[in-house]
Write a protein that binds this DNA or RNA. Structure first.
Lengths: 205, 205
DNA sequence: AAGCAGTTTATTGTTAACAACAAACATAGT
DNA sequence: ACTATGTTTGTTGTTAACAATAAACTGCTT
């Protein structure tokens, strides 16, 4: 059997969820926009069933807000105080993940994959595709979180990222953002956890 | 119009979710138990649709774990490290909530309601209905969290509580548990935030 | 007998029709 | 003119039948 590149298969619902998340992050779906199930179903060429599932999912993630019998709409930004709390909590999680690599260091394969992600990040910047930038940025962190705590940790972590992205986009230059991430990776590669923690704290704000 | 006591109306899905959560907490649904949609539908006298919604919801909460085309099963306990992180995060949230009451103190009505909850807690202990104890305990904290940060904060907080309950039950005597909570309420009532923070930290472990 | 391919069965994923509900509009009474 | 009631309309919630997938089983080949 030939060793073909493993292609990631996504379920229908995951693809729709990804698309809607992108739309919200990109601002195509502004806060308080009401989502119509039928419209979405038509847009994605499905029935309302899967759409409803996705809406429920995004609601749990905090991107949407749903009321009984009244549908779902895009959630608005958090009040500043809550936002600070969120940043704080997310930082806790990511620092935990980094510190975990003390006992459970990254493999060479991990490093390669993370580098690929950073290359993609650079590429997205170069193309000025900022929605993609955000997604790739998240996937970098996601890789670390998953490696450290698996599905469980990702599940608690994810909502924070999403809400933060919803709230504000840090204006960063291409080089700044990519360099920040390369710094994290480099520190991890060298096993310098202290520096990695510092770098991740600097990155999450 | 007579001012009747406002009765809380729960949606069908919320009721099912509550029931399943109770079952899991009570241990009637042990970890790794596979859930069958049809069985559940029959049990609650509904079709599979709403059941699927609830399963999705509980999956996002971390109580269940679902795989594509393979159904959902009760999630197992967290590894100790992750559990510590969880406790830590939950504590952060609850401390935030308490500190919030500095500027936004509890009203007399809040206090009355919280006292009612604590009376229920005592009652559940007296009846030795420990599943109910857990639920009422959670509702006490939930009241504070909601008051401090609304729906948004509850949504991030809730998964932690659930996972913690799933992991271990602190063995507490009736008086100890109820007194701990009364201590928190008393401190809040007197506006002694420092003491309240201390008490909540003591309570969450 | 062990391993593999094909088949069956049970369960989940999807769909489209139907029921229940909320909001907006129209109507009648004061 | 204004409030309150009734009606309509659009949207969400629910259901039951259908399609697709995964796991269990059967029988064949070596």
């Amino acid at each position: 059997m030939a060793a073909a590149k493993p292609t990631k298969i996504l379920s229908v619902k995951d693809q729709i969820a990804d698309q809607l998340r992108s739309d919200i992050i990109a601002g195509d779906l502004a806060p308080n926009t009401k989502l119509n199930e039928q419209e979405l179903a038509k847009r994605f060429g499905l029935s309302r069933g899967p759409i409803r599932d996705v809406i429920l999912q995004l609601t749990k993630e905090g991107l949407l807000i749903s009321k009984n019998n009244c549908g779902a709409s895009v959630n608005s930004v958090l009040e500043p105080k809550l936002q600070k709390l969120m940043i704080n909590l997310r930082r806790n999680i990511e620092v935990y993940a980094i510190e975990n690599f003390k006992n459970n260091p990254l493999t060479e394969d991990d490093v390669t994959q993370l580098e690929t992600i950073l290359d993609e990040l650079q590429g997205a910047f170069d193309r000025e595709d900022f929605t993609e930038v955000t997604k790739v940025d998240i996937s970098f962190h996601n890789y670390l979180i998953y490696k450290a705590g698996g599905e469980d940790l990702v599940n608690i972590w994810y909502p924070y990222v999403m809400r933060m992205r919803l709230n504000y986009k840090r204006i960063t230059t291409s080089s700044e953002c990519v360099e920040e991430h390369r710094g994290i990776l480099q520190a991890l590669r060298e096993g310098d956890i202290t520096r990695a923690v510092k770098a991740i704290k600097e990155n999450i704000k």
